[in-house]
Nucleic acid binder design. Structure first.
Lengths: 142, 142
DNA sequence: ATTTACGTTTACGTAAACGTCAATTACTTT
DNA sequence: AAAGTAATTGACGTTTACGTAAACGTAAAT
């Protein structure tokens, strides 16, 4: 349930597209403390009206990306780096090449992670299989 | 280069299959401090001769698993939990079922992680594509 | 008018995962 | 014998990512 007070400057500008901190907190199951912390870390920059924070669709998307990044084991700093790459206005060729390098770097990391996940999943499957066989044995022995 | 002093009890028992802490430190590119920390956390239990530590093939394997777990974003506690599952002597059916539950739990986590990795990789690929197109444009404009 | 709910700032606390000495021991090399 | 090299055991320090508590503001509901 997005916040909508329909009379403020903010809501008329961003019509109906604003979320309160608790909206996001509930939707993604993170504490408001964490959300504010991400702001301190420069990962979110919600609109302010007085002391209140209003989160746009972009903020919501970013939060989703932050949480996904965290699940992948990235630090907030690394996530911030990716955001900055994404937001960078690439004026020069050198700048663009630098971004491409960074992207490739991240992709190598993810490829390794993909391998790791697959290896561990396979190991777990084998282990599960062994457990099941033992279980059958034990039941048969009854 | 595994340690071999060929005169001690230990090395005659485990013949040539022992590693020193720095062997492992170099091979896996972790500090000795970290390795000892994993021991404190109950994840490794090298042989001791006096004050010295001697790591068996099993310890080496465990270290490899620890590092892989860490790359996947697991905490040392979670890694320890998986070790304990693996080492558990499943005497009863209930115990085995509990282990199976835990395995399934971990696998669900990994499935989600697999999704996350794939999503982020796809996003990065698209972003890379955009960068490349911009780069082409800039070169063409020269 | 006041409770209730929600939000804010400030600040201190904490758990995890090591890093970084410092002091000591043990072995080997010279 | 002296010096160097590798390892060990504390013990304190550090970073990251929040948790938690206090104290206050604002607005709606009773």
């Amino acid at each position: 349930m997005p916040v909508n007070t329909d009379k403020t400057d903010i809501s008329s500008t961003y019509k109906r597209k604003l979320y309160s901190i608790s909206d996001l907190s509930k939707e993604f199951d993170v504490t408001t403390r964490a959300i504010r912390f991400y702001e301190d870390a420069g990962l979110l920059s919600p609109l302010r009206e007085g002391r209140s924070r209003y989160y746009t669709v972009r903020d919501r998307t970013r939060l989703k990306l932050i949480l996904r990044g965290k699940r992948l084991g990235f630090s907030l700093n690394e996530i911030g780096e990716m955001f900055r790459l994404y937001d960078a206005e690439p004026g020069e060729v050198a700048q663009l090449n630098h971004i491409l390098d960074k992207i490739n770097e991240k992709m190598h990391l993810l490829e390794r992670q993909l391998e790791d996940v697959q290896i561990v999943m396979q190991e777990l499957q084998e282990f599960r299989q062994q457990c099941r066989e033992r279980l059958e044995q034990m039941i048969a022995d009854t």
